[in-house]
Write a protein that binds this DNA or RNA. Structure first.
Lengths: 123, 123
DNA sequence: CCGAATCCGTGTCGATACTG
DNA sequence: CAGTATCGACACGGATTCGG
């Protein structure tokens, strides 16, 4: 953690596992909405309202907070168009696209669990 | 969801994305500690104290809560040995081992971000 | 009008103390 | 040693308000 300021509220990088790769990625995308936000961006650029429509349950407050984090970490780009009405577009950076293997793995396991009985439907 | 009781506090399966594979997996392992707990179990059976040592920051309350969820969903087995002092061991089920591709992807991206500059260290 | 900031109620989590 | 109970801290959601 190069900065002393708290930039990752989700996963406090503690003690002996700061070097664990899995823990390291989770400190970026392990919070409640990050992966779903990135999932949207893998399908194309998105505006704020489009996120809100695609992610039922998220609040504008949390959405902007997560997008600001992802932007600060270099995973997402925020573009403001000085128009009326105002328009803001978010897109993936090259760094952000690097998590594609994770999205693929998540999608494959999810597909498998949707087709076969999901664990939750087991007795 | 066979039960009417709330078994998945992490990700309320909302509206149009209940069928999304990624959202579906995250409803199981998308919460704060599940993946790190499973990471431990991929390296062998674990006792409660071993989890607490390997996951600095987790509380006994949350640990047992997550383990109970994972057990209920069929990803983890809980074995109680009637000894003194009491001993409880947790292990992965076959269902639990199905998330291995996710762990691999997380580990690889994490490794890459640790070797090259992590996004967080970018300006 | 859209994006975002603010106030407030709620639920989750961590720290501690305690029980079997 | 494993798990529960209580309490304070914090993140999130909903509604409202502001800014451009």
């Amino acid at each position: 953690m190069p900065h002393s300021v708290k930039v990752a509220p989700a996963y406090p990088v503690a003690d002996g596992q700061a070097h664990c790769p899995i823990h390291h990625v989770l400190s970026y995308i392990g919070n409640k909405w990050a992966i779903l936000i990135l999932r949207e961006l893998f399908q194309g650029n998105r505006r704020t309202n489009e996120f809100l429509a695609a992610l039922p349950g998220i609040s504008t407050k949390t959405l902007t907070a997560r997008l600001r984090e992802l932007e600060r970490w270099g995973l997402v780009t925020r573009t403001v168009f000085p128009e009326v009405p105002p328009r803001v577009e978010y897109s993936l950076t090259a760094k952000g696209r690097e998590i594609q293997p994770i999205m693929v793995a998540l999608s494959q396991v999810g597909q498998h669990w949707l087709v076969h009985g999901s664990p939750r439907s087991a007795p």
